[in-house]
């Protein structure tokens, strides 16, 4: 056993292994070409998040004239109707 036979044995191993190497163009690809699925998945996710964020704005807004404050009932004090009309002073003399 010497250097030459060692070299021969390694050459044989190299021939077997390199014959089973994957194709060069399968591994040599720019990242953009390699990851179209990731890009698509990201785009779909952005779309879903955006539509979820915009969803409440699609419901109809109430008209300002029909709107009532939730604290309106506090204004309904006893005797309130007296303040809503002008007193009839002539009627008293009669």
């Amino acid at each position: 056993m010497n250097d030459a036979s060692l070299r021969d044995a390694f050459a044989e191993l190299r021939a077997q292994e390199t014959a089973r190497a994957p194709r060069f163009d399968r591994l040599w690809r720019p990242p953009a070409a390699r990851r179209p699925l990731v890009a698509w998945a990201f785009a779909v996710m952005v779309l879903i998040v955006a539509s979820l964020m915009l969803w409440p704005h699609h419901s109809e807004k109430p008209s300002i004239t029909a709107w009532h404050a939730p604290t309106d009932f506090l204004l309904a004090t006893p005797g309130r109707e007296l303040l809503q009309s002008t007193p009839d002073l002539g009627g008293y003399r009669r």
């Binding site: 190299r14 292994e17 390199t18 190497a21 994957p22 591994l27 040599w28 690809r29 720019p30 990242p31």
Partner: peptide
């Protein structure tokens, strides 16, 4: 071919790991 052989050697002759390493190397270069 030679690079794949060296990657195999660096990955304990595990073919899947060697492919992954070689692809990572190519991406680093690109």
């Amino acid at each position: 071919g030679s690079s794949f052989g060296w990657a195999l050697s660096c990955c304990g002759r595990n073919r899947d790991d060697a492919e992954e390493v070689l692809q990572d190397v190519y991406v680093k270069i690109l």
